[in-house]
Design a protein around this nucleic acid. Structure first.
Length: 765
DNA sequence: GTATTATCTAAGTCT
DNA sequence: TAGATAATAC
C-alpha cells in the first residue's frame, strides 16, 4: 500500500481507494474532506491515470492551486500540472474560449461582472422608458440569474405562460423583454456574465455532440468539492460530462450549504442518488479539527434544523475550553473587546496573529474591528468587501485592457471613452448608445463606421471619437507581439491614465497611483511566472492575463507583506478555512439571523447552517460576541442577542464575567460613542476632502490671482458685469474670505447667487 | 462639456 | 452612512 494512504482513517481510505464508479462522500465539518480529495487524486496519478483525464472542481481557485501543489508533493511529478482544476466558472470559461465559435462567440469574449451586468440592465430599463423602482436592477439581475441557472433561455421564458403571468401578477409584465434585451446586448458586446459561463457550457454540451463526446472522453475522472453548493445548471453539466464513464466523486456536507441565495440546491444530493442508483456512499464523521466543546456546541445548533442527512460528527480531540459569550454595549465596544481578547490570548498562549479570525454576517461590520485592531497595532487582513479589482482606478485601467482585447465591450468603452477627459460628454455617449441599439451593433462598430449612421453628432465630437478609437486600435495591433507587462505599461501611459493619477497629488490620488503600480507589478509577476513555466505557446500576453480576471476573488490573491495577520471576513468567505481562534461577531437578532432571512423555515435553516459553519471553523476556541446597540443606517439601533445563542446547549458555553465590563451608565456611554464617531470622521475620508478644500482655498487666495483681489472688494450696491449674465447690481454679500457669496440682480437674467471665488466679475461703478 | 455641490436612496451573503 | 444621481455655475 502506498505510504501516504496510512495517514488516513478507515472511512477516508475507503473513499480514496474506491476510484471507479459514482461515489458520494458526506463529509462532516473538519473531517478531512480536502485531504480525501487530495489523496484520491494522488492515488489516481499513482495508478498511472493520465492527469489530462482528471477534472477537479473546487470552490475557489486558491483551493485548487493549493491542492495541486500538495498533490505534486505527494506524487513527485510536475505532470500533475496538466490536471484541470479550478472553480466551475474558471474551468468552463477556459473550455468556452476554446469552443467559442461553436456557440457564436469570439474567443476573446469579455466576462461581465455584477457591476457591468447591472449597468446593462439599467440602460435597457432606461431605453424602454420603465420605472427603475418597479424594475429594480438588482431584482431584475437576480431573476435573470435564477432563470439562467434553471436553464431557461429568454426565448423559453417568454414562451412560458406560467412565468409571464407570474411577472404580470408581480406587476412587472415587461420582465421577459428586459431579459431578452439584456441577453442580446451582452451577446452584441461579445460578453458573458457569470451565469452565462454555466449556461453556455450546458448549451455547448447539449447542442454539439462532438464537443460533448470530446469532453466526456477527456474527463474520465471527475471530482467535485462542496457539492452541496452546486446549482441546477452545474448539476446538469456534471451529469452530461460524467455520462460516459460515471467516474464521478462528489464531496459535500448538507449541513454546510450556505449558498441557496445563489441558486445552490441541496436537492442535487438526492438527484445524484437517483441518477446513479448503484452509487457508493461514504460518511466521514470524525472531526479532527475542533475540540469536543466546539463540536458539541455546533451539533447542538444543527439539530434544530429539520431538513438534513443523517450524520453524527464526533471527535477524539481534547475537551477544550467552553465557547465564551461576550457582551458589548455598542458595536465599537464589541470591536475593542474582541481586539483586546485577541491581544490577551496572543500574549498568554504565544499565538500568532494568523491564528485568529474575526467572522461576521455582513461586510459592513468590519469597521469596528479594523479600528480596534489598528489601535492595538495588530496587523489584519480583510477578505472580501472592496477587493483590489473593484477599485475605481483599477477598473478604469482594466477597462482599457478589455476594450483593447474586445473592441465590442460596450461597458468598458462607456467607462473610459471620456476618461481621462477628452471632451466626449454624456449626451454624445447616450446618442451613440441609442444608435447602437437601433442598429443592433456595438458602440465601437458605430464609431468605426459613423459615416453609415445618422448620429447627429458634430464633426468635432466625431473627430475626438475617431482619435480615441485609433488609439485603442493601435493597442489592439500590438497585443500579439508584446507581453502583458509591456502592453499594460503602454496602455497606462498612452491612455493618459498614468499621467492623470500622477498629477493628482491629493492623498487619494497618490494611493490610486500606487494601486496602478501594484497592478502593473502584478502583471509583471504574471509574465515572469508564465515564461518560467516554459510554455510552448505564447501564454504571457495581456489577453491571457485578462482571461479570467473577472473570476479572481479576494481569497485568491496572496498577501505580499507578510502573512502573520488576523483574518477578518464574512462567514461565507470563511467556508473551507480553519483557525485556532475564531470570533463570531454581531450574533444578534436581525443581523444574524439576517432580517431578510427569518420569514420562512428554509431561510432560517440556512442562517443556522451559516452559524454552524462559523462555529466549525475553529480549532481551539470560539468566542461569540453581540452588542446591545449598534449603528445601522446611520443611527443607533438597540439589539437583542440572537436566538442562536439560546439554541446553544448551556453545557458547552460560558458567559463572560460581568465584572470585566466597564459599568457604563447611559450618559457616559453616549459620549464614548460620540467620541468614537468624531475620531473616525477625522481619520477617514473627511480629512482628505478637507485637505483638498484647503489646498484649493490656498491656491485661489494667492495674491497674484487678480479675480480674488477684485472680488474681495465687491460690496452691496455695486454694479458689476458678468461674462455671460451681463450687467447687474449686487444685492447682498455674505460669507468670509474664499467662501464669499453674493446675490446679484442682473438686468437680463434676473437674480443669481454667485460664489465670488469662481465668478469673474468686473466692477463697473 | 466639466467640475463641484446638493439631494436622494438604499442598506446582504458571492462567482 | 455612502454612493449615485441631479442640479448648478463656469
Amino acid at each position: 500500500m502506498e505510504k501516504f494512504l496510512k495517514e488516513l482513517n478507515e472511512a477516508q481510505r475507503e473513499a480514496v481507494l474506491f476510484t471507479d464508479g459514482p461515489i458520494m462522500v458526506i463529509a462532516g465539518a473538519g473531517s478531512g474532506k480536502t485531504r480525501v480529495l487530495t489523496y484520491k487524486i494522488a492515488y489516481l496519478l499513482k495508478k498511472n491515470i493520465d492527469p489530462f483525464n482528471i477534472l477537479a472542481l473546487t470552490f475557489t481557485n486558491k483551493a485548487a492551486n493549493e491542492m495541486k501543489e500538495r498533490i505534486i508533493n505527494i506524487v513527485g511529478t510536475t505532470d500533475a500540472h496538466n490536471m484541470w482544476m479550478g472553480t466551475f466558472h474558471s474551468v468552463f470559461a477556459k473550455i468556452l474560449r476554446r469552443e467559442s465559435l461553436k456557440i457564436g462567440y469570439p474567443n476573446n469574449f469579455t466576462i461581465y461582472d455584477t457591476d457591468d451586468s447591472k449597468s446593462v440592465i439599467k440602460s435597457v430599463i432606461k431605453e424602454m422608458d420603465l420605472d427603475d423602482k418597479v424594475y429594480n436592477p438588482g431584482y431584475v439581475l437576480g431573476r435573470i440569474s435564477a432563470a439562467k441557472t434553471s436553464l431557461i433561455s429568454y426565448e423559453e421564458y417568454n414562451k412560458s405562460d406560467e412565468l409571464v403571468s407570474e411577472d404580470r401578477m408581480a406587476r412587472k409584465p415587461l420582465f421577459g423583454q428586459i431579459y431578452e434585451s439584456y441577453c442580446k446586448r451582452c451577446y452584441k458586446a461579445s460578453a458573458m456574465d457569470f451565469d452565462d459561463l454555466l449556461f453556455n457550457m450546458h448549451m455547448l454540451l447539449r447542442n454539439f455532440p462532438d464537443a460533448l463526446l470530446r469532453y466526456q472522453k477527456k474527463f474520465k475522472y471527475i471530482l467535485v468539492d462542496e457539492y452541496q453548493d452546486t446549482n441546477h445548471c452545474q448539476y446538469i453539466i456534471l451529469k452530461q460530462l460524467a455520462a460516459m464513464f460515471e467516474n464521478i466523486c462528489v464531496v459535500g456536507d448538507d449541513a454546510q450549504s450556505i449558498y441557496s441565495f445563489r441558486g445552490a440546491n441541496i436537492q442535487n444530493i438526492l438527484g445524484f442518488q437517483n441518477d446513479y442508483p448503484d452509487f457508493k456512499i461514504f460518511r466521514l464523521e470524525q472531526n479532527y479539527r475542533s475540540t469536543q466543546n466546539i463540536v458539541n456546541a455546533a451539533n447542538s445548533i444543527i439539530v434544530n434544523n429539520v431538513g438534513k442527512v443523517h450524520k453524527i460528527v464526533w471527535t477524539e480531540n481534547e475537551n477544550g475550553e467552553k465557547v465564551k459569550i461576550l457582551k458589548a454595549h455598542s458595536d465599537s465596544e464589541e470591536g475593542s473587546i474582541v481586539a483586546n481578547s485577541i491581544f490577551e490570548n496572543k500574549m498568554n498562549f504565544q499565538m500568532q496573529n494568523k491564528d485568529f479570525a474575526i467572522l461576521y454576517r455582513t461586510n459592513a461590520q468590519s469597521r469596528a474591528f479594523e479600528e480596534s485592531l489598528r489601535k492595538l497595532n495588530i496587523p489584519y487582513r480583510i477578505y472580501g468587501g472592496l477587493s483590489f479589482y473593484q477599485r475605481k482606478e483599477i477598473k478604469d485601467l482594466i477597462a482599457y485592457f478589455r476594450l483593447t482585447i474586445n473592441n465590442n465591450d460596450d461597458e468598458a468603452l462607456k467607462r473610459i471613452v471620456n476618461y481621462p477627459a477628452r471632451g466626449i460628454g454624456k449626451t454624445s455617449i447616450e446618442r451613440l448608445i441609442i444608435v447602437a441599439s437601433e442598429n443592433n451593433k456595438s458602440i465601437w462598430q458605430i464609431i468605426e463606421n459613423f459615416g453609415d449612421y445618422k448620429t447627429g453628432l458634430n464633426t468635432g465630437t466625431l473627430n475626438k471619437l475617431s482619435e480615441f478609437i485609433t488609439m485603442v486600435k493601435s493597442f489592439s495591433v500590438q497585443l500579439k507581439n508584446k507581453d502583458a507587462h509591456e502592453m499594460a505599461c503602454l496602455v497606462a501611459n498612452s491612455s493618459g491614465i498614468a499621467r492623470e493619477l500622477y498629477d493628482d497629488k491629493t492623498p487619494e490620488g497618490i494611493s490610486r497611483h500606487q494601486n496602478i503600480e501594484e497592478l502593473l507589478n502584478g502583471i509583471k509577476d504574471f509574465v515572469d511566472r508564465q515564461e518560467s513555466a516554459a510554455g510552448e505557446e505564447n501564454t504571457s500576453s495581456l489577453a491571457e492575463f485578462m482571461q479570467d480576471i473577472a473570476l479572481v476573488t479576494d481569497a485568491d490573491i496572496k498577501d505580499k507583506d507578510g502573512n502573520d495577520k488576523v483574518s477578518i471576513m464574512t462567514i461565507h468567505a470563511a467556508k473551507g478555512l480553519e483557525f485556532p481562534y475564531v470570533y463570531i461577531s454581531g450574533v444578534e437578532e436581525n443581523l444574524f439571523p439576517s432580517q431578510f432571512n427569518i420569514n420562512t423555515r428554509n431561510e432560517l435553516e440556512e442562517e443556522r447552517r451559516l452559524f454552524y459553519v462559523a462555529l466549525t471553523r475553529a480549532m481551539k476556541r470560539v468566542f461569540i460576541s453581540f452588542a446591545t446597540t449598534r449603528y445601522r443606517w446611520g443611527n443607533v439601533v438597540s439589539c437583542e442577542p440572537s436566538r442562536f445563542i439560546e439554541e446553544l446547549d448551556t453545557k458547552f458555553i460560558e458567559f463572560e464575567n460581568k465584572k470585566h465590563f466597564k459599568p457604563f451608565d447611559d450618559d457616559s456611554r453616549l459620549s464614548f460613542d460620540k467620541f468614537e464617531i468624531k475620531k473616525y470622521k477625522y481619520t477617514g475620508q473627511t480629512v482628505k476632502k478637507n485637505l483638498v478644500k484647503i489646498t484649493q482655498a490656498i491656491n485661489s487666495a494667492t495674491p497674484n490671482n487678480p479675480d480674488f483681489i477684485s472680488n474681495q472688494n465687491i460690496q452691496v450696491g455695486m454694479v458689476v458685469e458678468h461674462q455671460r449674465f451681463g450687467k447687474g447690481k449686487v444685492i447682498t454679500v455674505e460669507g468670509k474670505q474664499s467662501d464669499k457669496k453674493a446675490i446679484v440682480f442682473f438686468e437680463n437674467v434676473g437674480q443669481k447667487q454667485l460664489l465670488l471665488k469662481y465668478a469673474k466679475l468686473k466692477v463697473i461703478e
